[in-house]
Design a protein around this nucleic acid. Structure first.
Lengths: 197, 197
DNA sequence: GATACACTGAGACTCAGTCTCAGTAAGAGG
DNA sequence: CCTCTTACTGAGACTGAGTCTCAGTGTATC
């Protein structure tokens, strides 16, 4: 690993650590980017070079989820509900393993409207991912997008429910329940058959 | 109508009109609240008293939708998918009637990430509304919230698709199609029967 | 060892959003 | 018709997010 790349990685990690610490102790809105930058030993503009917005410091966890989905999807190519389920499982597992960070992020976003907004802004990308898992090359068809959006809405709510009742709610089971409420299999779509079985 | 109330309504309308005009001609980010306030003949702080954020000026259309849903829901009490469909119809009709304003709002939010976020921040409220339409008093049950969130995700996507292809896409039909993809009726839920039929 | 390049700090700037304070006009009551 | 309360407003200052420019410094390349 080249020196520059390593230093970049270190700086990024330092910013994340400083942010997490300060958000936890002082709260999100009371923490300024200047605070975080100083604690991480960089200048304020540099902090913005690493994280475009303050909210990105909270939701950087999600970056790893996208990678997980890509890995699972690449592992055994194919499309449809089965693939969606497998990816949901993988991400849910990852979330529960990393529960502390994720919980902190979602607690923050519950009390901070601007963070709710920022979290949702990432969904457009996730919807596309879901539509591709479902329909493959046909991901841009209205049906796939409609269903992808529905799935993402459901998953977000599952995470919220899980974050609201930590310890008592099983995230993976909640997501499965949600997928069951949706027509997560062949033969249950009434308005017209789809090829996602 | 008392004088005060009328003046408030006038000021609100003036702010909306000024904002719409300026967003259209100068663009969203190039328009400052000071511009809007000046054009509407009020001070900047007063503009913020009427609209808590700049984004609220864009999405104020949705306020009327909530009222429509409340009206339809009150008209004939009851719950379940039928009610959801009726409310969706009413709102879709209202949206298509008011197409210009809605299209402008969604075009803006497509090109402005911060607006995407703001739009999504309103969804939390809409999910609650949907869950109540579906399940009535049981709206806080996980099942209702999961499905409410799925419906809202789907509807948002339907609006996006409609806004992307104006004239060629029928919003009401797209939403119906989305509801059909979801188990919009009794007997199609696989993971367990619900009382929303 | 010289050169091109990427990253950085410093500092100024714009604008959203909040707050305080004082002025003013509407509405209630005599 | 006059007073008093109440609600709305303008003025102006303030904080902090996010952007930009510029110059300096350290790495990678030849």
């Amino acid at each position: 690993m080249p020196v520059t790349a390593k230093r970049r990685a270190d700086t990024r990690a330092a910013l994340l650590a400083a942010a997490e610490r300060s958000f936890r102790t002082k709260g999100y809105s009371a923490t300024t980017m200047a605070d975080i930058a100083e604690a991480a030993g960089v200048s304020r503009p540099t902090a913005f070079r690493y994280f475009r917005t303050k909210a990105d410091l909270v939701f950087s966890v999600q970056d790893e989820w996208q990678q997980t989905v890509r890995d699972v999807a690449a592992e055994r190519p194919g499309t449809g509900w089965t693939l969606v389920r497998r990816c949901c499982d993988a991400v849910a597992e990852q979330i529960e393993r990393d529960a502390d960070r994720v919980l902190a992020a979602y607690r923050l976003s519950a009390e901070q409207p601007s963070l709710t907004a920022a979290a949702a802004a990432r969904d457009r990308g996730w919807i596309q991912v879901m539509a591709e898992l479902l329909a493959g090359d046909a991901a841009d068809e209205p049906d796939a997008l409609l269903m992808g959006a529905a799935i993402m809405g459901m998953i977000n709510m599952a995470i919220i429910l899980w974050a609201d009742a930590p310890g008592t709610t099983d995230l993976r089971r909640t997501i499965h329940r949600g997928l069951d409420l949706l027509p997560a299999g062949p033969g249950s779509a009434k308005g017209g058959a789809t090829a996602w079985g």
